Simulated scan of single mutants.
Amino acid sequence: MDKINVLVTGVGGNVGQGIIKALRLSKLNLRIIGADASPYSPGLYRVDKGYIVPRTSEKNYLPEMIRICQKEKARCVMLGPDQELLSMAQNKEIVEQETGAKVIISSVNVIETGNDKWLTYLFCREAGLNYPKSFIPTSPEENLAQAGKIGFPLIVKPRVGFGSKDIFVVRKKEELNPVIQRIYNPIIQEYLLPDDEEYTSEVFTFADGIQYGTITMKRKLLRGTSVVAICDDYPEIRTEAQKASLALKPYGPCNFQMRLTKTGPTIFEINPRFSGTTVARAKFGFNSPENAIRHFVLQEKLPPPNIEKGVMLRFWEEIYLEQKRLEQMAAAGEIEGKVACKPDYF
C-alpha cells in the first residue's frame, strides 16, 4: 500500500501530539505532516514534515491549510486545538473539495454544542441526560437567588473556554459576584461530587451514524490534563456516553467528561474531537486516528474493538535539536524529517 499522507494540527499541544503517537502505533503506512503556529512546538520536529501555520483568527489560515494539503497530497486532516474546530467545521466542504482530503470533524452544530457550556447543558437537559444545574448570571441579586437554589460550592467558568482556564470554585455567597465579574461570558454550575469519581468516555461514530465502539477511563487531572487514566468497562458511564452520542450525532471521535454522582453519571463537558488521552486509548486497543483513516479514508470494515484494561501514568518528556533547525523552521516556515532526538533515559 502506498503511504497515506496525514495532516495533524496543533502539534505543540497534548492533543496533537497524542494523535501523532497513536498514528505511530498503528499498522498503517503513513507519512505524518504536522502544523502549528509556533516554531517552538515540539511536534514539528518529530513528524515527517513540519509547517508553521497562521492562527485560526488570521485571514490566511484557511488558504494556508488548503495549500499544505494540496502540496503534501494529504488524504486526511486531524485537528488538535479546540480553537480550530469551529473554523474547520464551517469550511469542511471547501477543504475537502479543493484538496481531496477527508477532514475528521463533526458538524457545526455539534462543535458549537461542545464549545459552549451553556449549549452543552441545554443539550443534556433536552436529551434526557443527567446534567449539572446551571444558570447564566444576570443581576447580583438574581445571581445569589439562583445560587441559593443550587447550593454551594459552585463552579464559575467561561461558557466558551479552553485548557481549564479561568475556572473557579466558589464556596460561599460573598465570593460569587466578584468572581463572576472576573470572567468573560460566564456560566455558573453545580459542583459535582465526589471529586474522585471523574471519567472520560469516547464514542466513535461512523459516517452513517452507527456507533463503532466506546472506551472509558477513570481519571485524575493536573491543571486540566489527565495524568492518571484507568481503563476498564464502567458500564454506567459507557451507557450514558452512548446515549449522549446517539442524541448528539457526532462524526468520528467524541468525548464525554462525567462525574459519577449520587444521582448517576453526569455529563459536564463534551469534546467532539480527538482527546488528550488519544494515545492511551490507542495503547489499550482503541486507536481512533487509525480507525478514522480506515473508515473515512480507506472505507474499510473495522473489526470490533479489543480493549485491554490497564493504567496510564503520564510524565514530562523532552526532545533535543540543533539551534540551526529551530532557526530554519522560524525562517522558512517548514522543515523536512524528524530532526529532533528523543532519548530513552527514563
Rank of each mutant, 00 (worst) to 15 (best):
V179A: 02
Q181H: 09
I183P: 05
G128C: 07
F162D: 06
E174C: 01
I150D: 11
A127C: 05
T200V: 14
S139M: 08
D116A: 05
E202M: 11
I183E: 02
V170H: 06
L129Q: 13
I180A: 08
R125P: 01
L129V: 08
I180R: 01
P153S: 02
A147R: 03
K149C: 00
I167Y: 07
P137Y: 02
T205K: 00
E142V: 03
P132W: 06
L144K: 14
I187E: 03
P158H: 04
G163I: 08
T138L: 08
P153N: 08
L144E: 14
F206L: 14
G128K: 11
G148W: 00
F206I: 00
I180D: 03
P186F: 12
V179D: 04
F206C: 09
G148I: 00
T205Q: 12
L176R: 06
P132R: 11
I188W: 06
L129R: 01
L193S: 11
V169I: 14
T200H: 01
T200C: 11
L154E: 09
Q189H: 14
G128S: 09
Y191L: 07
K149H: 12
E190V: 03
I187C: 02
P186Y: 09
R125G: 03
G148F: 00
Y199C: 06
T120A: 08
E202F: 09
N185Y: 11
I188N: 08
E190S: 13
P137I: 03
A147D: 07
P153R: 07
Y121K: 10
F152P: 03
E126M: 12
Q181R: 15
Q181P: 00
K173H: 11
I155G: 02
V156E: 05
Y184E: 10
F135R: 04
R171E: 15
L176H: 05
N177W: 14
L176G: 02
D166A: 15
D116V: 10
I136M: 05
I136H: 03
K157W: 14
D195P: 09
L122Y: 00
I183G: 02
F206K: 14
Y191N: 05
E126K: 15
F152Q: 06
G151A: 09
L154A: 05
D166P: 01
T138E: 14
V170P: 03
R159S: 14
K157G: 07
L193A: 09
A147V: 05
N185S: 13
F204W: 15
G128Y: 12
A207Y: 07
T200N: 13
I187L: 08
I155Y: 12
N130S: 13
L192K: 03
Y131Q: 11
E142A: 02
N143Y: 00
V156W: 01
V170C: 06
K133S: 14
F152D: 07
L129P: 11
Q146M: 14
I167Q: 07
V156A: 15
I155R: 06
E190P: 07
Q181D: 11
R159M: 09
W118M: 10
K165W: 10
Q181A: 15
P140D: 06
E190G: 10
L122K: 15
Y121P: 01
W118T: 02
K117H: 02
S134Y: 07
